[in-house]
Design a protein around this nucleic acid. Structure first.
Length: 723
DNA sequence: ATGGACAATGTTTTT
DNA sequence: CATTGTCCAT
């Protein structure tokens, strides 16, 4: 099998690692995706493992799909039965299959973040708590955090009065979810972990099945995910995890990069493999990346090296404000494309916060240039899209109260707050959910409940109930698309949206886009469609076939690469974000985020600093990002509007670009002298041509008989000096 | 019940 | 500023 061709020695040992736990520490661009796919192919093709017995977990659906097709390419056939997906999707599958052991049934709906916020608000209202003092967002964050740490409401630790409140809301929140037969994102992990923990039959079933478990982006797992992996691997112990603590950027979501260390502690016998060589970026880009990340404490310094050569210097550019920043970026892209130095699709523009995309989009629009924007929220967060999905969810599960209240009066059909409240109250009285009562009314059994409603209300409710009855009947019979069309037509959704304005037409266009997505579900049912919709990640919305620049947040950029990268908004308060100023841990994460952004670039990196930033309508002067001070001046090529800067000229602070790092000042002595002979683990024997000290490392040029000239970083290359 | 006018309030990142 | 929520008149 030629699976192992074109792999370096570390990659090979990772791919072919034997039984037992394996930890792969992979720097950016070190080919970890390749290692994962090749290992899967190796296990199936060379070791003879049945794909059915392999579980591979990725961070996004897109990554999973890519991996699947690459495994197929390697094997020549589809790996039938392979479990491959995100943590969330995999858990959803397990929960549906094992629902009998759980406090909800198998056609549960996954609540998205808006729904979750709605449930929190409902819970707060039910408990008569003041929304002013307890922000739903904050409360939800606490609940989510508890779930990520596998804490049920009864386990919620109480230290302050607020904890007391959160615990009560959490309890009510869970009740409301169960009543609607819903789960939130965190529940998917929480309940699967609990199921595996508590129910030994289920645990053994899956642990026996999964002879091999592979996990990508291990540094971004939370405690629930860690527990999951541990349970699933409890029998065979063949757990293969890949991660890079320097790229951990999801602590705010409960992720804990210390899981990497925990893994080593829990499995002292684990093989640890380092992937150090970078195949993506130029050395200049890597040097900048290292200069930035080296400032983080408590990490094992990695030396990123490449054989691609040093490449262009990094471009640093100042603009007057964020508006000019946007036009600068777009103009630069336009001229580079015009000069045929790059294709439009080679470019990515990255920013810290979503709000920053607006000016960029406007600049593209203004120049009439196309772009694509990564972000599921952008599409699925739109009112009209949410409405239609809520209709479908309601048809799928009438007990879903959140969806019901969303659509019961959109478009308006005379059922306002009063009627809704009456419906709820009466439903509660007869121990039905509002949706079930609505179905009753729709069947024409209104007389049985006539005492509860006014004649008018009853009529409106019954009309809507009858519609719902019809849709209910269709769910199991027709594909999602047919149901959607029926709903849109029956409620007159088009007329409701399309009010003749540009915006109205755009909104209807979004509905049509959703329709296009639903059209793909011919083999799979409504439940599958709704699940996929709930679990799309931002990256999943990225189409890579289109040759236009990509706009995305730094978070969404993880795992991707682009020939030319712009990182914009490099001022203190944006990157690093203000919210991290008083928290050293958060500040370190901001730094890692910047590092992730830098290491996405293959050939060219532009860092853009707007000297003024508009916030809340005002333009304010800003300080440039503190991270820039850590980049040595010789790696950077400064261009731009220095004249705007009074400090330019002799008083310009060149020292700001000189790394004050004592490490950089440390004098190194070359270990290798021209003419001496060395041994390399992969390329065999070679002769040193030259050697010099650069950036705290020794760069050695070696001529190998086998492969020719190579430039190596001495700290990484594991060269042996032959005597 | 509905829609318009006004006030308040706010922004990290996302499965 | 721009969105979201609240209040009030119809």
């Amino acid at each position: 099998m030629d699976i192992l061709a074109e792999l370096n020695s570390q990659q090979q040992s990772a791919v072919m690692a034997g039984e037992g736990p394996v930890l792969v520490l992979a720097g950016p661009g070190s080919g970890k995706t390749r290692v994962l796919t090749q290992r899967i192919a190796y296990l199936i093709g060379a070791v003879g493992v049945n794909p059915y017995n392999i579980l591979a977990v990725t961070f996004t659906n897109k990554a999973a799909r890519e991996m699947e097709s690459r495994v197929q390419d390697l094997l020549g056939v589809r790996a039938h039965g392979l479990t491959l997906g995100t943590f969330h999707a995999t858990c959803a599958r397990i929960l549906r299959r094992e629902a009998e052991h759980l406090p909800f049934n198998s056609n549960f709906v996954i609540f998205d973040s808006d729904d979750q916020l709605g449930v929190v608000k409902q819970a707060l209202a039910d408990l008569n708590l003041d929304l002013k003092h307890y922000t739903p967002r904050g409360i939800h964050a606490s609940i989510s955090n508890a779930k990520n740490y596998l804490r049920l409401p009864e386990d919620y630790p109480i230290q302050t009065y607020r904890d007391e409140v959160v615990k009560r809301v959490y309890t009510r929140y869970q009740e409301l979810l169960f009543d609607s037969n819903g789960v939130d994102f965190d529940d998917l992990l929480l309940w699967t972990a609990y199921l595996l923990e508590e129910t030994s039959t289920v645990r053994e079933k899956y642990a026996r099945r999964y002879e091999h478990i592979l996990v990508d982006e291990f540094q971004d797992t939370n405690l629930a995910q860690y527990a999951l992996v541990r349970h699933l691997g409890s029998i065979h112990k063949n757990i293969f995890v890949v991660g890079d603590t320097d790229q951990s950027i999801y602590a705010w979501r409960g992720a804990d990069y210390r899981n990497v260390m925990r893994f080593e502690q829990d499995h002292p016998e684990a093989q640890v493999i380092l992937l150090e060589q970078n195949y993506r970026s130029t050395q200049s880009i890597l040097n900048v990346a290292m200069a930035v990340i080296d400032r983080n404490p408590y990490r094992t310094a990695k030396r990123l090296f490449t054989q691609r050569g040093s490449g262009d210097k990094i471009a640093l550019h100042e603009t007057y404000d964020d508006r000019e920043e946007a036009t600068y970026v777009v103009d630069m892209i336009a001229s580079l494309v015009g000069l045929k130095q790059a294709k439009p699709g080679d470019f990515a523009i990255m920013y810290r916060t979503n709000a920053q995309s607006r000016l960029l989009e406007e600049a593209f629009l203004h120049r009439n240039l196309p772009y694509k924007l990564v972000g599921a929220q952008r599409f699925y967060g739109r009112r009209e899209v949410k409405d239609v999905i809520a209709y479908l969810r309601l048809a799928h599960n009438p007990a879903n109260d959140i969806s019901l209240s969303r659509v019961i009066n959109a478009p308006p059909r005379g059922i306002g707050n009063k009627s809704l409240l009456a419906l709820r109250t009466h439903a509660q009285k007869i121990h039905l959910s509002s949706g079930e009562l609505l179905l009753e009314l729709g069947w024409g059994s209104g007389s049985a409940h006539s005492g509860a409603f006014t004649r008018r209300t009853l009529a409106s409710l019954a009309t809507f109930g009858a519609l719902l009855v019809g849709w209910r009947a269709m769910v199991a019979e027709v594909p999602p698309l047919t149901l959607m069309d029926e709903i849109l037509e029956k409620v007159g959704y088009r007329d409701y949206l399309d009010d003749g304005t540009e915006e109205g037409r755009e909104r209807w266009g979004n509905v049509m886009e959703l329709r296009r997505l639903a059209a793909e579900y011919t083999e799979r049912d409504l439940a599958a469609f709704l699940e996929d919709v709930a679990l799309v990640s931002d990256q999943d919305t990225l189409e890579d076939s289109v040759n236009v620049p990509t706009l995305l947040t730094l978070h969404a950029a993880k795992g991707l690469e682009f020939p030319v990268v712009f990182i914009v908004g490099l001022n203190d308060g944006t990157l690093p974000h203000v919210r991290s100023f008083d928290d050293p841990e958060a500040m370190q994460e901001e730094r890692r985020l910047f590092y992730v952004g830098i290491t996405r670039a293959k050939d060219r990196l532009y860092l853009v600093i707007p000297l003024n930033r508009s916030a809340y309508g005002y333009s304010e002067p800003t300080e440039e990002s503190r991270f820039l001070k850590d980049i040595p001046v010789d790696l950077v090529e400064e261009e731009g509007h220095l004249r705007r800067r009074p400090k330019a000229g002799p008083s310009y602070r060149p020292d700001r670009w000189v790394s004050p790092s004592p490490a950089a000042a440390r004098a190194l002595k070359p270990q290798y002298s021209p003419g001496s002979r060395v041994q390399h683990p992969v390329w065999g024997e070679g002769m040193v041509l030259s050697s010099r000290i650069q950036d705290d490392d020794e760069i050695v040029d070696v001529f190998f008989a086998e492969v020719g000239m190579k430039r190596l970083a001495a700290s990484l290359a594991r060269l042996q000096l032959k005597t």
